[in-house]
């Protein structure tokens, strides 16, 4: 079975599944980087807040092959994050702040990295054991589903299966390529 047929089958199973592959929101911001000057992007009629978020956009990659700023809610890995970004709380996109523990149980989605155009598997583990960080709340929801689809919901405190369920912040681990 070749990849075109696979895509067709995915399309048949629903628009949302296709959306997972075409990554709507990152497409918008990717479009932005191709044009000269973020402010000149003709933005679609969304809220002012979203427009500001899109304008904040991508900066030049400052880590080789890892485009964007992990302190910015538009960082490519955060396409489906819901929580306080770990780098703002003393951790990094890949590590928890000091004194907190990374939950093993979590949910895993995919995001597209504009630096190479590839999709990657992203694990949104929560950092547990302290009161909420309170800084840099970031909520993007690509592929996010309601709570009854528990394995794909970012509205769940994923510290719930950890030894301490107090939620502090969230990381976004890159597990591997998401191309099958």
């Amino acid at each position: 079975m070749d990849s075109t047929n696979w895509m067709d089958r995915r399309f048949e199973t629903g628009a949302r599944y296709l959306a997972r592959l075409t990554s709507r929101r990152s497409f918008l911001t990717r479009l932005g980087t191709l044009l000269v000057g973020a402010a000149s992007i003709p933005l679609l009629p969304m809220s002012r807040a979203a427009a500001q978020a899109a304008d904040a956009g991508f900066r030049e990659p400052d880590i080789d092959g890892d485009a964007g700023d992990p302190m910015n809610c538009n960082y490519w890995r955060y396409c489906s994050i819901d929580g306080f970004m770990s780098p703002c709380c003393g951790g990094s996109a890949s590590s928890c702040p000091p004194g907190t523990e990374m939950s093993a149980v979590t949910w895993i989605g995919t995001c597209q990295n504009p630096a190479d155009g590839n999709d990657y598997l992203i694990s949104y583990n929560d950092c547990c054991g302290k009161s909420p960080c309170g800084q840099c709340f970031c909520n993007n929801n690509e592929d996010d589903m309601p709570v009854y689809v528990t394995g794909r919901s970012n509205n769940i405190n994923w510290c719930l299966a950890h030894s301490t369920t107090a939620y502090h912040s969230t990381v976004a681990l890159v597990l591997g390529r998401a191309d099958g």
Binding site: V105, I108, T110, L121, S123, G151, G176, G180
Partner: peptide
């Protein structure tokens, strides 16, 4: 390059709860 591989499907659909090593979370999973 055709359908998603089992390893990929495992990571995306199962690993979140069943972990990379398939181990239990006592009392929960």
């Amino acid at each position: 390059g055709s359908a998603a591989s089992p390893r990929f499907n495992y990571i995306l659909h199962c690993q979140g709860c069943h972990l990379a090593d398939g181990g239990a979370t006592p009392g929960k999973i």
